Computed example of a mutant assay.
Amino acid sequence: MLLYVIGDMAVTRKLDIEFLAPVLLQMPYEVSAILKERDGRKLHVAAEVRAQHTGDIVASAEGVFIVVDLAHFIAALRPEIRARESDLSSRRAVTSFAIQPGEKNDV
């Protein structure tokens, strides 16, 4: 979601996740991320997952993402999907969001 906020599309180069506590099914969590550094096309990102009922951090992550243009993604699509996905005007800016069990979470 952070990539929507900064306005770039990117692919994952490296992602390290540390689970600090069990991440259970059917429990609500809040995910937040920050852009720690931008070095050319490289984005260095950190994120946390917190249990909503306690606020405890249950997982943390750091990653490196490489900015790419839309053509990178469109080239990988089948032709029938490529035509349908050409309009990206519905982007929404989100810095954190809640994952609610049993709900469709369109972000």
Rank of each mutant, 00 (worst) to 15 (best):
L2M: 05
L2K: 05
Y4D: 06
Y4K: 01
V5Q: 06
I6L: 14
G7P: 06
G7T: 03
D8C: 03
V11A: 05
T12I: 15
R13Y: 10
K14D: 13
L15I: 11
L15C: 12
L15T: 14
L15A: 14
D16Y: 00
I17L: 15
E18M: 08
E18H: 15
F19W: 13
F19K: 03
F19N: 01
F19C: 06
L20N: 07
L20Y: 07
L20P: 03
P22K: 04
V23A: 12
V23E: 05
V23N: 01
V23F: 11
L24E: 11
L24M: 13
L24V: 10
L25A: 14
Q26G: 08
M27H: 15
P28M: 04
Y29I: 01
E30Y: 00
E30T: 07
S32L: 00
S32W: 01
A33T: 13
A33R: 02
A33C: 11
I34H: 09
L35D: 06
L35M: 13
E37R: 15
D39H: 10
D39I: 10
R41L: 11
K42F: 13
L43K: 03
H44I: 14
H44N: 08
V45L: 14
A46K: 06
A47I: 03
V49N: 00
V49L: 11
V49P: 01
R50K: 13
A51I: 02
Q52S: 10
Q52R: 13
H53N: 14
H53R: 11
H53L: 09
G55K: 06
I57Y: 01
V58D: 01
S60D: 06
S60A: 02
A61Q: 03
E62Y: 02
E62W: 05
E62D: 10
G63E: 07
V64P: 02
V64G: 03
I66P: 03
I66F: 08
V68S: 06
V68I: 08
D69A: 03
D69W: 04
L70K: 14
A71S: 15
A71H: 08
F73H: 01
F73K: 04
I74T: 15
I74E: 11
A75M: 12
A75F: 04
A76N: 09
A76P: 07
L77C: 14
L77P: 05
L77M: 15
R78C: 09
P79E: 08
P79V: 04
I81K: 10
R82S: 12
A83H: 10
S86Y: 00
S86H: 09
S86I: 06
D87C: 03
D87G: 04
D87V: 02
L88K: 04
L88V: 08
L88M: 09
S89G: 15
S90G: 09
S90Y: 10
R92W: 12
R92Y: 05
R92T: 14
R92H: 11
R92N: 09
A93D: 07
V94M: 05
V94N: 02
S96N: 11
S96C: 00
F97V: 14
A98Y: 14
I99Q: 04
Q100K: 07
Q100E: 06
G102Y: 06
E103I: 05
N105G: 02
N105Q: 06
D106Y: 11
D106E: 12
V107K: 02
